[in-house]
Nucleic acid binder design. Structure first.
Lengths: 153, 153
DNA sequence: TATTGTTATACTCTATAACTATA
DNA sequence: TATAGTTATAGAGTATAACAATA
């Protein structure tokens, strides 16, 4: 009974997060390369892909989806809005909040961003099993939701 | 026979990479928070953790390990060297190349960085199975090694 | 000629804190 | 009082191209 639980995070400590950083950097560069014709940065691709389903989101919601902070999104959205790809509208229900949405010009860009992600995934994961993919999602979700605690040294 | 292969990258396209970005951002912030007493950025933590085993590495090797570019590492290593945490020495075997190593002051910092990664992993992954973790590593490695091709739109 | 790493430049990402407006 | 988001500022990350030294 001990091995299943104690081995879960075993192997060299840090290997999970080091591999995560490498993969995140590598794939983001792949996306920027694939979409180089669109002149988008990695974070812009990430944000557009999160909006590709056509649903409006508050800035804070988009920050959660992209893994960034609202502060970061302000300038990123300024840039996308300046290019006419997204629009910000006051939320009538809570007028402190903005609803971010794709413009007609932004929709194909967002779909292209999401499609590029799908293409990278297909190219990379063709030989893997559904069980491996399910394990991946379980681990990544657990990491994302991990306690964000400060631990004094 | 179709499902195992066709489903590997199925589910919403982009879900794998979007989740990867969220997890990478979230965990990096956890590490910075945990190690806030050490005044290290996320990339510095990542680089130090890669050096924590005590082995010297060329700048290019460290770039591969961290998922960054040599250009990025130059200023990062300048900063760590300025704080006396790492040293760069000419490689006698290839005098174009630098060997990067931890100083005595850098070693405990690097060990702390790696230990923080291990702590986040343990906190997050306690309930997961070895099979899930193995699936995670398979997916992340496949993503990292994916073809880095440019695909015209 | 090709490669390693740095330098220079410009832009993007990020964190912090202060601020506005709204709840 | 608390929250959503922006603004301001400063520092860190990134890509590109040009460069030096070495292979």
């Amino acid at each position: 009974m001990s091995s299943a639980e104690t081995d879960a995070a075993a192997a060299p400590p840090g290997a999970v997060l080091l591999a995560l950083q490498r993969a995140a950097h590598a794939t983001l560069r792949m996306l920027v390369t694939r979409l180089s014709g669109l002149e988008l940065t990695g974070s812009e691709i990430n944000a557009l892909a999160c909006l590709a389903d056509g649903r409006e989101r508050a800035v804070g919601e988009l920050a959660v989806l992209t893994g960034t902070r609202p502060t970061t999104l302000t300038s990123l959205l300024d840039r996308l809005a300046g290019r006419g790809l997204v629009a910000r509208q006051l939320d009538p229900g809570d007028r402190r909040s903005f609803r971010v949405s794709l413009t007609p010009a932004g929709q194909p860009m967002a779909r292209a961003a999401l499609a590029a992600m799908g293409a990278v995934e297909q190219a990379a994961l063709a030989g893997l099993t559904p069980a491996e993919l399910a394990g991946y999602h379980a681990v990544v979700q657990a990491l994302t939701r991990a306690p964000h605690q400060e631990v004094p040294l």
